[in-house]
Design a protein around this nucleic acid. Structure first.
Lengths: 170, 170
DNA sequence: ATTTAATTGACAGTATACTGACAATATGGC
DNA sequence: GCCATATTGTCAGTATACTGTCAATTAAAT
C-alpha cells in the first residue's frame, strides 16, 4: 500500500544528526580550552602542533600534518603564528632545499610545560557532566570511531611509525 | 616520597584528548557530508539553517542562531550565501525596522526535499563502523554531553519553546 | 516624555579548514 | 644525463567560527 505521505521536516533532522552533535561538541571543546588556557597565548591547534614538534624535533611541515591529521595548507599559517610568537624556529634541511625543519625554542618548551595542567583541566571539564563509567565508554567509542573512519578524512592520520620508514624514499 | 621526575611529553597528550577526538570526528563528519551531498550546493551549516527556516518560516537571524546554536556573526555570511543561491529570501519585519525575516523559496524547499536522503546516508556512514548497539550508546552519550555542556559554549542552544515566550518582550 | 538599556544586523580582525594551483626541487626510469 | 613524476612549501579563494564594535532602532525606567 503506497501510503506515501511526505515526511514533514522537523528539527530532529538537525538535532539528532551525529554530524551536528560532533560540531557542537567540537565548539564546546574549543571554548573550554580557550577559557582554561587564556593565560597562555595558544589555541588547541597550536598546542597540538607544539606537542608534536616537542616529541619530534626536526620534523617538517608535511610530516607534522600527517602525524596530527591537520590540513597541510592550514598548518602553514599555524606554523607562521607559532614562529611569530617565537615558540618554534624553522631551519632549512641540509640535504633537501625544499624542506624546513621545525624545532621548539626555549620559550616554546617552557609554555608547553606550563600549559599542560590547564589543558588537562579543560579536557576533564568537557567530560565532567557524565558519570565516570560513561566517560570511559564515550572516550573508547570515540577513539574507535575516529580510527575506523580515518581514511574518510581528507588528511588521514599517519602515525610516526608509518612515516619513519618512508624517510627520504617514500 | 617526592619522586617527581618530570613527565615526558608524548603524543598521548594529543591523541587521547577528547577535544582532539571531537575535532577529528567533526572533520570526518564534514568530509562525509560533502561527499554524499556534492550534487547539491549545500554545506552542513547551510543545510541546518535551511531546515530551521523551513520549520520556522519568518524566523529572524538572531533567533535562528539560538535555535541551532551557531554564532550570530557567522550566520550573517551563511544567510548571505543561501540568499545568493536563491534558496531563501529576506523580508523586512513590518513591526520592527531592525529585523529581517527569513523564508524558503520554492528552490530552497525543493533542494531541502531532495538532499535529505543524501544527508541521512552521510549521517549513517559516520557511525557505520561501529556495531549497532555501540552506535546507539555513542549517540546517546553524545546527545547527553552536548546538552549538559550547553552553557559552556558561547552560543548555547535555546530551543524554540524557550524563544517563543520571549517574543517581543524578552 | 526623556534618558537609559537592550536588541538587531552589520562589520573588521583573527584563526581554523579545505580546494586547487604553483615554482622549486628531488627522484625514478631509461 | 634526461625526462616524467612526485614532493615541499606556499598562495589564492571560499566557508566556518569567535571577539569586539557600531549605528539604527526598540524597549524599559522613571
Amino acid at each position: 500500500m503506497p501510503n506515501s505521505k511526505p515526511t514533514p521536516v522537523t528539527m530532529d533532522a538537525v538535532y539528532t544528526a551525529p554530524g551536528y552533535l560532533f560540531r557542537r561538541m567540537q565548539q564546546i571543546a574549543v571554548a573550554l580550552f580557550i577559557e582554561e588556557c587564556k593565560a597562555f597565548d595558544l589555541t588547541p591547534v597550536q598546542y597540538a602542533a607544539l606537542v608534536t614538534i616537542s616529541t619530534h624535533p626536526g620534523i617538517d611541515a608535511t610530516r607534522l600534518s600527517a602525524v596530527i591529521a591537520f590540513d597541510r595548507s592550514t598548518l602553514g599559517n599555524v606554523i607562521e603564528r607559532l614562529q611569530a610568537k617565537e615558540f618554534i624556529v624553522r631551519k632549512p634541511a641540509p640535504e633537501d632545499k625544499r624542506v624546513k625543519l621545525l624545532y621548539l625554542t626555549k620559550a616554546g618548551a617552557a609554555v608547553l610545560g606550563d600549559i599542560m595542567p590547564s589543558v588537562d583541566k579543560a579536557q576533564a571539564r568537557m567530560l565532567q557532566p557524565l558519570r565516570p563509567a560513561d566517560r570511559k565508554t564515550l572516550l573508547s567509542l570515540l577513539t574507535q570511531l575516529v580510527d575506523l573512519n580515518n581514511e574518510a578524512s581528507r588528511v588521514p592520520l599517519r602515525a610516526e611509525d608509518a612515516l619513519e620508514h618512508l624517510g627520504r624514499s617514500g
